[in-house]
Simulated scan of single mutants.
Amino acid sequence: MKPYYERENITLYQGDSLQIIPSLEPATVSAVITDPPYSSGGMWQGTRSMPPEAKYCQDGKTLGRPTFSGDNRDGRSWAFWCSLWISECRRLLTDGGYFLSFIDWRMLPLCTDAVQAGGLVWRGLIAWDKGRGARAPHKGYFKHQCEYVVWASNGPLRKAVHAGPFDGCHHYPVLQTDKHHMTGKPTALLEQLVGCVPAGGLILDPFAGSSTTAVACVRKGLRFVGIEQEEAYCEISARRLDAEFGQGRLAA
Rank of each mutant, 00 (worst) to 15 (best):
V218N: 01
S237L: 05
Q58G: 09
A79E: 15
H181F: 02
D129I: 12
Y172K: 11
D59Y: 11
R7Q: 09
N72Y: 06
L93H: 14
H180W: 05
R90Q: 14
Q145I: 07
P186W: 13
Q176E: 15
H170L: 05
F224D: 00
T94A: 06
R223Q: 01
Q176W: 08
L93A: 10
E53N: 06
A252R: 01
A251F: 03
I20D: 01
S83C: 02
C111G: 11
K139H: 14
H171N: 14
H162C: 07
L108E: 09
Y5H: 06
G60R: 12
V225R: 04
F207V: 03
Q45A: 12
Y141M: 08
I103L: 07
S210C: 10
L84H: 09
I103H: 08
G200Y: 02
S237A: 14
P36A: 03
W128Y: 10
C146W: 14
G195L: 09
C234D: 13
N154F: 03
M43E: 09
S87P: 02
S30L: 03
D205H: 01
L18F: 02
P109W: 14
S30F: 01
Y56E: 06
G168H: 06
P26D: 02
L100S: 00
I126P: 03
A152W: 00
V194Y: 00
G60F: 11
F166V: 08
P36W: 05
P198N: 01
N9K: 08
W78P: 10
F142R: 13
S211K: 05
W122S: 12
